[in-house]
Amino acid sequence: MLKLEHVSYQVTEEGQALSILNDVSLTIEDNRFIVITGPNGGGKTTLAKIIMGLVTPTSGSIFYNGTDITHLGITERAKLGISYGFQQPPRFKGLRVRDLLELAAGNTKLPREACCQYLTRVGLCADDYVDREVDASLSGGEVKRIEIATILARQSGLLIFDEPEAGIDLWSFSRLIETFQSIRQQRNVTLLIISHQERIISLADEILLVADGEIRHRGPKEEIFPLIMADTVSGCCYMNEGAHK
């Protein structure tokens, strides 16, 4: 179980305090499939990074399976079974796809067959990629799918994906949806997916709508979808004016 209690995150920019996340409290039971959505800049990535330990909250506490992880580092959280697929994954000169998969799997040798399976699950033809370096020669969509494959290779209880659909072609996207569906059916890990994609949102047990650093709404998709539609138009007065012209 993942639990956030009164988590806030503020930064100081040009002497001004800026609130990025504002008193977020949240409980996610095990083996759920949760999608976080909401407008750009709403605080979704920041929330995910706070869970993974990439960002330290200004106040509040985080618990994972009963352990207070608020002051644990990234490595320790990873070892406890939290994984995070970056929205914009870095590239590595000199590390091959296979190397990343093996590191993800716990720094053990993986048979080629196993590497291939992870890659296939994100729609990559394994033979073309296993031995390629994860450097600038790969396209954005390729790097993104390799990132997702590394998260699949981790044997962890909480998988966080940050916009897994971004930059991915239609064919790979369908493959990815199948992969998420099958993970969902097995019901043995918790999935926390940040997404703007209707097909991913519709897989969710529950949707969290994050905007302006707060959890605006939480509920099943039938309930949240209409709210999203309403929010997108009313959020900005300039857009409203435009809509009425």
């Binding site: 993974m52 091959r96 990343l100 590191l103 716990g106």
Partner: peptide
């Protein structure tokens, strides 16, 4: 972000740095 990425896979900061250098060379 290369270091933090490898840390999210369970490596310490030192291990991550070492891995990046050994791959690079």
């Amino acid at each position: 972000d290369q270091i933090t990425k490898l840390m999210t896979l369970g490596l310490t900061a030192e291990e991550a740095e070492e891995r990046i250098l050994s791959g690079f060379l």
